[in-house]
């Protein structure tokens, strides 16, 4: 299997970039069996309280483990996930 590319549209998901706060959704994280995604404090944003980050993002980090089942694409309420290979 070649490389899988997963793109998140951060203007739809990610509250530092105009999208929703992924902490309110996280469907993709939950539904993905090999657990390809992680949810993390957004990089390069100024947090008011660094101990309590408020800007969050989802990143598909374990791309080599994606089985291309496309469940995440179908589950995403924002239509924010695109997968190509």
């Amino acid at each position: 299997m070649g490389k899988t590319k997963i793109r998140i549209n951060y203007s739809k998901c990610g509250n530092a970039t105009g999208g929703i706060d992924p902490r309110q959704c996280s469907r993709c994280l939950y539904i993905c069996e090999p657990a390809v995604f992680i949810r993390h404090p957004a990089l390069k944003v100024k947090e008011e309280n660094p101990y309590d980050p408020q800007y969050w993002q989802v990143t598909p980090v374990w791309l080599s483990l994606c089985t291309r089942c496309l469940k995440c694409v179908k589950a995403c309420p924002q239509n924010a996930i695109a997968i190509t290979w």
Partner: peptide, 25 residues
């Protein structure tokens, strides 16, 4: 611990650790 969740997207040897699995290959 402040930003522990960022550990898997940081750089190792100047290379982003995103998609570590393919990079290790």
């Amino acid at each position: 611990w402040k930003n522990f969740e960022q550990v898997y997207i940081r750089k190792i040897m100047g290379i982003s650790s995103i998609d570590l699995g393919n990079k290790l290959k």
